[in-house]
Amino acid sequence: MDERRISFAVKDLSVDFNGFKAVNGMNLSVYKGELRVLLGANGAGKTTLMDLISGRTKSTGGKVLLNDKEITNWEEHLISRAGIGRKFQIPNVFKELTVRQNFLIADCKETRVLPNIVRGSHRELPDHIARVVELTELYDFLGTEAATLSHGQTQWLEIGMLLVQNPDIILLDEPTAGMTAHETRKTAEIITRLKGRHTILVVEHDMAFVRSICETITVMHHGQNLAEGTVTEIENSAEVQAAYLGSAGIGHA
């Protein structure tokens, strides 16, 4: 149906937590360079889907494909090396280390132990990291322990680490959660800049934000792919409206 190449896909993916199917026969294909938004009410399985794609949770059925290669239930670090990076909903950084150290670890082209012993630590930040530090406005905080950063700064630190890691595919779980208006705008700017260079799957509820960054939306409901389409199609879909009945509507899910 589409001539673009598929970057990653899930086929009939399911996970069963003692009888509760958080993801239940999910299908999804995301094209190379696409920015896809994942919508869904709380408990629809969005975060679990990201856990399954990135290997944190082992699936009980179905497949995850990366460039047509099956990576189902690989270990997290191998999936990461294969090119999938992730930002968590709750900021997930190295809290006891300084911002500089966080960035240095994120620069992970070499992941093996022995070469990393021979290499030694950088004194100066390499240019490609310095650029990200500038972009995320963390320059004055390089020597600060990550635990003492504000919430928004921690979110950016994690996004910044993803940029340094530079994976083909980026999974973003509510990147603007808890951010101020200025921070949200800036984050949208950063994400828009990534579009095209990376394939991005993002869980986001802020519809203004979604409208400004994305072409295709996938709506999840009860662990399945309920609907897929443009913003307008989704907003007018009877199916989606029915699924959201009872909750406050798309914008507030």
Binding site: R56, V93, F94, I117, R119, G120
Partner: peptide, 20 residues
């Protein structure tokens, strides 16, 4: 060394280290 830095990262947050 860089390995020592990564090790401290692992001590701090294994999940993040795996995802890198």
């Amino acid at each position: 060394t860089r390995a020592g830095l990564v090790l401290q990262g692992i001590r701090d947050n294994e999940v993040r280290a795996r995802y890198l």
